[in-house]
Amino acid sequence: MFKKITFGDDFQRFSQWYGKVFYAFILISFCCPCFAQDFQPYLGVSNADNINIRSDSTVMSKAICNVSKGESVEVILEKYEWYKIRLPKNAPAYIRKDLTTPIDAKTVKISKDSVNIRLEPNEGAPIIGKAEMNEIIAVLDTQRQWYKIEPTNNSFGWVYKKFIDKAAEKTMAPVVINNVVVTITKEEPAQDFVIEGVVLPYGKVFNRQATHKLRDREQKIYLLKGDKTSLNAVNYHKVKISAKLTDAPKSKYPILEVKKIEILD
């Protein structure tokens, strides 16, 4: 009539329950951001010469390029003993020609979504970045079915973290962008701002710090610095740009370093 429950039965049930709870805790710890330590991107400086930037966080991965002592890098992520950094403009990068539309001899527009950027001009080369549809890309050279390009803003590599120090902190003067007051320190990477407007030539200005300007819908002016060829290709076009604020206390207008351009018209 009554089932006899022994101490062994209770211990077995407790063990099963404890195992399930422990497994759930481990799973949540890995998957839930609230258990992960937040990493804040920052501006770093190389503390040694000829430091390799690699395509993955291992010494066995291919070297992309190197950085010199004192060179600044934008640290995005930490993974064990490695830092993920944004690739410098001199890093080799290639994209398939059939995934682009020419604008002129030195500029193309991406014609597909999420296009791979590779380290070498072949499909087996490591993927080092992505380009999005309508993004404007500066072409450096042509190699058969591939373009050699400047790395996009969404191109990354890995560097051994013992070779990177934090840059000295320097606070920039507050600037209003998109009706928001922005103050940035050199220790932290400048926030990317997305602004829409019409690109115009800046004209010949003595000792100028920018080559173009952008007029937004409220007729506010921003000065633009970046790849001159790409900016020339979108003169008088409505565009959406992703850019970073630069330190220019004597400038009448905010100066933005252009990271990405998309044509809207």
Rank of each mutant, 00 (worst) to 15 (best):
G124C: 03
L119I: 09
E120W: 01
I51Q: 15
N66K: 14
K84L: 06
P102C: 10
A91T: 12
N153D: 12
R118P: 03
K84F: 00
F156L: 07
A105C: 04
M60R: 14
N134V: 02
I149Q: 08
S155M: 14
I127F: 04
Q143F: 07
V67G: 06
P92M: 09
Q145E: 09
D98V: 01
A93G: 00
P102A: 11
K161E: 11
T100R: 08
T101W: 00
V115H: 09
K112Y: 04
N90M: 05
N66I: 04
P121Y: 08
I51M: 14
E120L: 12
T101Y: 05
I103R: 12
G70P: 07
N52S: 15
K162P: 05
E132R: 10
A138C: 11
I85N: 13
S55M: 05
D141W: 04
E81S: 12
G124D: 11
T152A: 14
I85S: 13
A91D: 05
I110H: 02
T100G: 06
K109R: 14
V73S: 11
W158N: 02
Y147M: 12
K162H: 11
A131K: 07
K109C: 05
E150H: 12
E120D: 10
N153H: 10
T100M: 13
K84A: 03
R96T: 00
V139A: 02
E78I: 15
Y83F: 14
K162A: 11
D113C: 02
S57E: 10
A138D: 08
K130M: 12
L140T: 02
A93D: 01
L119M: 15
I110V: 15
I64W: 09
P102H: 10
P126M: 00
D98A: 02
A131D: 07
S72D: 15
I137R: 07
T100C: 15
K89W: 03
E71I: 11
I85E: 08
N134A: 11
P121W: 06
D98C: 01
D113I: 04
K148Q: 13
P151H: 10
E74H: 10
G129D: 05
P102F: 09
K79Q: 12
R96I: 00
I95N: 00
E78C: 14
A138G: 03
I110L: 07
R54A: 06
R86C: 13
I53L: 13
I136C: 07
T100E: 03
K62F: 12
I117R: 03
M133D: 06
N122Y: 13
E132H: 08
I136S: 07
A91N: 09
Y94Q: 00
W158A: 05
R96D: 00
N90Y: 10
A91L: 11
K109I: 08
N134M: 08
S114D: 10
I51H: 06
K161R: 15
W82A: 14
P151M: 13
K97F: 02
V108R: 04
K112M: 02
V73P: 06
K106N: 15
K109N: 01
R54M: 08
A125M: 09
G157P: 12
D141C: 07
I103F: 05
V75P: 08
T142S: 14
D98R: 02
R54W: 02
P92Q: 13
Q145R: 00
K130W: 07
K84V: 04
